[in-house]
Structure formats: structure tokens, C-alpha cells
Amino acid sequence: MAGQMRKALTYKLVLLGDAGVGKTAIAVQFVKGQFNPFLESTIGASFMNQTVTLPDETLIKFQIWDTAGQERFHSLAPMYYRGAQAAIVVYDITNRNSFEKAKEWIKELQQQGDPNVVVAFVGNKVDMPEARKIQPSEGESYASENGLFFIETSAKTAENVSELFMKIAKQLPSIQRQKDITSGPSNPGVKPGVGAPSKGKGGCCG
């Protein structure tokens, strides 16, 4: 279907996690293949997009919303994760606090987010094994308890970064297809991300 038409399926993806865990670094590594240890801190959120091709030739276009990590910006987060089909919750494996924060994000997503959202639980900074505080087993067990998929990455060395997005991409269309099956023959090629949710904002134009 969409694969033959070579039309990209567009998905909204949101990056969540504590400040300084490497959300922007992961996104930049994925989108541009670069790493910069001093990326500017994200204020509010920033936007990037990248397309991946699945083995079955399906094109998946990610609209990536990279959010600010500081607690203060928490109130903005719902604007970004509402209507997102995928979320990457990141913690820093050298920082226990960020792990706890990541768990809170998972809880919030489970309560407030789309029930079908694909959530990746990501431990970043594996290039610093000597400073590790969170063992892989700990992240893994939390992820499996909550039905998430778990992966450890390094935005610095690019380890597992594209794997992370590929894994998400592989999970996405299946969910989409399931939706199509349950909700009848609606057109599958149309992007679910962009204009679909919350059309009816009163607005001022009248």
C-alpha cells in the first residue's frame, strides 16, 4: 500500500527526560550524524525531522520534538506529547536522579498520553562506563514491567542511536495497521501527526 507508493508515513515523536541527559544530542546524532558536547540548552522545545526506510521499503518520516529538560518546562510538555505516536524517554546512566525522573515521565505518559504510543526507555551516555550508576538490568527490568522497549545508547559515539529509531519505526506501522483494522478502511497513507488532533481550538477569527 503506502510502501508501493513510496509515500512517507509521518509520525510525531517526542523526546522527554531530565535536563542534560542528552536528548538533543541523541536527536542531532540521528538527524545530522554529529556530536557536540556543548549543544545549546533547549528552551521550550526544538523541532527536527528525519526519514528512515524500513527493510520492506516503507518510508517513515519522524517529526521530532525535542523538549526542554528542566522541571520548570514540565507544564509545556503535554503540548508536545499529546498526539505523539512515539516517545523516547531518556535518562543518563551516570545519574540516578535522571533515572527517577525518567520513571516519572513514563508514568505521566501512561496516564495522559495516547494509549497506543510507542515508548522507548533509553539509558544514554554508555561511553562513560566508569561513571555508571544505573546497571542495564535495572533499566531493562523497569522497561519490561511497563511494556516499553529498552535500549542503551551513546549520542557521543552514535552507538545504538539509529537502532533506537529503527526499532521505533518498526513498531509504528504495525500499530498503525492494527488501528486501520479496528477502525475500518480509513486511508492508511495519511499522516496521523500533523493536522489530526485537536482541530477545534476556538481561535479568534470566529
Binding site: I43, G44, A45, S46, F47, L76, M79, Y80, V194, G195, A196, P197, S198, K199, K201, G203, C204, C205
Partner: peptide
């Protein structure tokens, strides 16, 4: 909407909220 109605129409059509201004202001 008042100053740039065409832009407003397009942004509404694309469902783009004004959250980009957060970075500008802060």
C-alpha cells in the same frame, strides 16, 4: 490573527501552536 491573518490561517491549518515563541521570549 489580527496583524497577519493569512499567516494565522496557515498556522491553524497546520495545527502549529505558538510554542516556538517560548525560546524567543526566554
Amino acid at each position: 490573527c489580527q496583524y497577519l491573518p493569512k499567516v494565522h490561517k496557515k498556522l491553524v491549518q497546520m495545527d502549529i501552536k505558538h510554542t516556538y515563541t517560548v525560546d524567543w521570549i526566554m
